[in-house]
Design a protein around this nucleic acid. Structure first.
Lengths: 210, 210
DNA sequence: TGTCAATTGTCAGCGACTGTCACTAGCCTC
DNA sequence: GAGGCTAGTGACAGTCGCTGACAATTGACA
């Protein structure tokens, strides 16, 4: 790797860290691109040569996580029923994600940024759009697994929408609570996924949930 | 109603129409606030006195529709199972929505704008965030119906997330297709909702869907 | 070492907003 | 019906995100 390349990598990293650190401490809207550039001592123009926009820095880590989830779903054995494949893929990929994130940014910083994402309207909106794109991708993968045409059969998109909905609910509750550990997220998510059946099937009043 | 009040109402309406018309023909990003203000012959500053932002004009009609859906869910007889209540509320409120929209903006214009919303990344993101807020509200209503605590019992949020997910899928498919009628949306949505059970239950390969 | 190409800074400009302030037009009272 | 009062408006200046253009710099490679 060149000196030039290394230098680029360093500024990129520095910009990303500075941005996330500022978002986490001061807030997203309260941080200007000039602030980020100044923290790394480059011009504002240079920031925009590395990142398409302020938003892109906030979603750098989530983007990585999404890619890992997609891989994990692809790697699931074809014997599993779709919902099961999705569930195992996500729950099991969290460990991988944890490690991969640490290589880029302290996991603690990432979690503080994640809270900012969930509580900043502009970022939350962007997050949900990304999630929608991810769901579309997953629906395609599920359809392929089952040998179906996504556009002809509604079921792949339905399962993924259901699954994605539950994941988003648990992500939100998790980020709003105090237990910001991976273990806490895993517990919450599996508990919610276990309730999918009961939520659809039964008479709630007759059978209260734990 | 005052002359003053009437005048205000007229500028508000004119701004809204001008904005939607421009969005539908030229596109959202291609329309500047100056364009909208110029079309009504007021200053840009005045536009911002009527609307919090360009985005707000695009979501004026959807906001109305959401309010009607909430009302419709509240009005459902308590005997219905949650998913059934949601389904009937939404499907039946479309007629009400149709009328209410016509009072403000030609329904045809609204539909063209809706297409723009679904195909403009910034607007789609905002739309999804609004949908998330609506889901949170509906979860509260459902929980109340069933006499549950939303934060203690996962099921209200799960059903609503599932339902919302299916609705969003069908909205997207509908807006991307050619049949932009209410009837088309109703058919598509009911067909998809009918597939929720099969999507979760069965072995897809053994029982292909229609 | 000198040339070439990649990286960067500077500057100018657009579009969405916001605050400020003077001005105008409708309202209300005498 | 003239006057003052105030809500509504326009004009102006400024912030912030972002982009294009051009010149200056810095590493790469012969």
């Amino acid at each position: 790797m060149n000196l030039r390349e290394r230098k680029k990598q360093r500024t990129r990293d520095a910009l990303l860290r500075a941005a996330l650190e500022l978002f986490a401490t001061r807030g997203y809207e309260e941080t200007t691109v000039d602030d980020i550039a100044a923290a790394v001592d480059v011009s504002q123009r240079t920031f925009f040569r590395y990142f398409a926009g302020k938003e892109e820095t906030a979603f750098f880590v989530p983007r990585l996580a999404e890619a890992l989830v997609v891989d994990a779903v692809r790697a699931r054995p074809p014997g599993e029923v779709p919902l099961e494949a999705l569930r195992r893929a996500v729950v099991e990929s969290w460990d991988t994600i944890h490690e991969a994130v640490e290589d880029i940014v302290p996991i603690d910083l990432h979690m503080r940024v994640y809270r900012v994402i969930e509580s900043t309207p502009a970022l939350l909106a962007a997050h949900l759009r990304r999630a929608a794109e991810l769901e579309e991708q997953l629906a395609g993968i599920i359809a392929e697994r089952e040998g179906l045409d996504v556009d002809a059969d509604p079921r792949p998109r339905i399962v993924v929408a259901l699954f994605g909905g539950v994941i988003r609910v648990t992500e939100r509750l998790w980020s709003a609570g105090d237990d910001l550990t991976m273990e806490g997220l895993r517990r919450l998510t599996t508990a919610y996924l276990d309730q999918v059946g009961p939520a659809l099937a039964g008479n709630w009043r007759a059978e209260p949930s734990p």
